[in-house]
Design a protein around this nucleic acid. Structure first.
Length: 286
DNA sequence: CCTAGAACCTGCGAGC
DNA sequence: TGCTCGCAGGTTCTAG
């Protein structure tokens, strides 16, 4: 489910409720949840035991917990339906509870990875000197990262022979953008999702990036309050979804700029939402 | 090398 | 009621 803003909310929750604690015990309840940990669930738990968790980090939609005393980290991806929850020890197990992590303190809470569709998962990996888990070296910086290079992104965009929404979802070009925020940023920029990237001008790229950042920051501002409790709740519903979306999920509803009904088009096994008047398709679109 | 499409899962709501 | 179909916010592998 989650895109960058939701994952960042989770990261903050982990930093507050999990960082600094020492792992006592790990239970892997579904093998698919650790499939990226090649050595398997037993090994995953054994490797974590006794280690102190460092400050939670994030790049794009990936987040990780460095082990304070080793050059490795627990990498997490929420996939489509993943949640990381901090729950009281005696709370009933969630239906789709996949991994449980207990700590050697008396705070009375544990970390749970819950995931219905099992596209997400946890795994342990070595980290490079800058702290990045080695398996996500190909993931680009995200647009909220101060070191994101707008000029390099523009150049890479023009080099690609593809269309703009595909490029926005390509995590090796720019990370953290998913289907919702792609549609939202494109609506704000008045760009059709099938616009070829080749002809992008510098100002157009700059405008698009500006809107990507705006929509993410807006979502972050709303969702950022939901972790201020005992629970690290990711379950999406940052509150932003219901109220503030201009394009995504609004098929048939009037465009907030021009009143034209928003359209939904099947696209890459999912959907694209756009205003047919504000976001004109390219002339030679297929 | 690059790009487009399928595959990986489970559950929910709509329609018959 | 119960079945099938379409749909869900992601990533990765493979075929061309």
């Amino acid at each position: 489910m989650p895109e960058l803003p939701e994952v960042e909310v989770v990261r903050r929750g982990l930093e507050r409720w999990v960082s600094g604690r020492i792992v006592a015990d790990v239970q892997v309840l579904h093998p698919r949840a650790v499939r990226r940990h090649i050595a398997g669930g037993e090994d995953f738990g054994a490797q974590l035991q006794g280690h102190r968790v460092g400050l939670a980090q994030r790049r794009g939609k990936y987040l990780w917990l460095p082990l304070a005393d080793s050059p490795s980290a627990v990498l997490a991806h929420l996939g489509m339906s993943g949640q990381l929850l901090v729950q009281p020890l005696d709370a009933a197990d969630e239906k789709h509870l996949r991994i449980r992590v207990r700590f050697s303190d008396d705070l009375g809470t544990e970390l749970r990875f819950v995931d219905q569709r099992t596209f997400g998962g946890l795994s342990l990996h070595g980290t490079s000197p800058d702290g990045l888990p080695d398996v996500i070296a190909h993931i680009a910086r995200d647009p909220l990262d101060p070191l994101f290079d707008d000029g390099a992104f523009h150049d890479a965009l023009r080099r690609r022979r593809t269309t703009i929404k595909r490029a926005l979802l390509d995590q090796s070009l720019i990370s953290g953008v998913g289907n919702i925020y792609a549609d939202e940023a494109l609506w704000r920029t008045r760009l059709h999702y099938e616009r070829p990237t080749t002809g992008f001008t510098r100002p157009r790229t700059a405008e698009l990036l500006g809107h990507v950042r705006e929509v993410m920051n807006a979502a972050l501002a709303v969702g950022g309050t939901s972790f201020d409790s005992l629970y690290v709740n990711v379950n999406g519903e940052s509150g932003y979804f219901d109220r503030s979306l201009d394009a995504y999920g609004r098929e048939g509803e009037p465009c907030r700029r021009c009143g034209t009904p928003i359209r939904r088009r099947p696209w890459m096994n999912r959907s694209s939402y756009f205003c047919p008047r504000c976001q004109r398709p390219p002339r030679v679109a297929s």
